[in-house]
Amino acid sequence: MHNISNNKNELQINNEINDKEIRLIGADGTMLGIVSTSEALEMAFQKNLDLVKISPNAVPPVCKIVDYNKAMYEKAKKEKEAKKSQKLVTLKEVRLSAKIEEHDLDFKVKNAYKFLSEGNKVKASIRFKGRQQKYTDDGYEVLSKFAESLKEVGAIDKAPLLEGRVMSIILSPQKP
């Protein structure tokens, strides 16, 4: 039996539960119905377990008779598993120019290919300076060629778009 002061993200247990009536679930998982909180606490104490509020927003709130430490351990274990299975996707940027040479473009494509293969998104951008702004069509062609070279590992998320002086395209890795 525990009477630990909780953080806001933790569950309410035993004497912290102030509701008059609760929906009670037994230690074996059976539904025991709606009972008063004092009656539920008495049942938990008889079994030498804790009364834990598992669904505070329900009407009436749902409580369960369990071993509090075991419940918290299981909850932490589930959260750790969920975190392990998450994949963090980052956005890698590749800078190009409107008058890029073939070899340089191939080198940039090779880097972007590596990023996409690792599961990251790639943003290719061209910055137009001064008089280059007249030749945005060249930039569009370079970005289209860049995306075409990577079509086997990447799909276009955002088509080439001119925003101010920068034209960019975003590619995301294709699902296998």
Rank of each mutant, 00 (worst) to 15 (best):
V142R: 09
D104L: 10
L162A: 01
N69I: 09
K175H: 04
A98D: 08
L88P: 00
K99V: 03
K108A: 10
S38N: 14
G164T: 07
S5L: 10
L105E: 09
S38E: 15
L24I: 01
L161R: 04
G164L: 07
L96M: 09
L11K: 08
S5V: 11
I34G: 04
N14Y: 14
L24W: 05
E93A: 03
D19Q: 07
F107D: 04
K77I: 01
E79S: 10
V35N: 06
K134I: 09
L11P: 02
K121Q: 02
Q86H: 03
V109P: 04
E141N: 14
E152K: 08
E148Q: 04
I100W: 13
A71P: 00
I126F: 09
L161H: 12
K114Q: 11
Y135S: 09
L150F: 14
V89T: 10
I100S: 11
L150K: 01
A71Y: 15
G119W: 06
D157R: 08
I34T: 15
R131H: 13
K134W: 06
Y140W: 05
V59A: 09
K47W: 07
D104E: 13
I54N: 03
S172H: 08
I17W: 10
G119E: 01
Q132C: 01
S85M: 13
Y140C: 00
H2T: 11
V142P: 07
G154Y: 02
N18W: 07
E148G: 06
D157H: 02
L150A: 04
G130L: 05
Y135V: 02
A76H: 12
K108M: 07
R131N: 15
L24T: 00
K20M: 05
K99Y: 15
L116V: 05
V52S: 01
Y140Q: 11
E42D: 13
E39I: 00
K134F: 14
N120F: 03
K114E: 13
M43A: 06
R127K: 05
V94W: 05
D157Q: 10
K175Q: 08
S172E: 12
D138F: 10
L91V: 05
L41N: 01
V94Q: 04
E101G: 14
G130R: 13
F146V: 02
N18S: 06
D157G: 02
N3C: 00
G154S: 03
E163A: 03
V166P: 04
K145R: 15
A40Y: 10
V109K: 15
L51V: 04
K87T: 12
S125Q: 11
A124H: 12
P160L: 09
E42R: 09
G139V: 13
P160Q: 13
V153R: 10
M31Q: 06
L41C: 00
K151D: 14
F107A: 06
Y135Q: 12
L49Q: 03
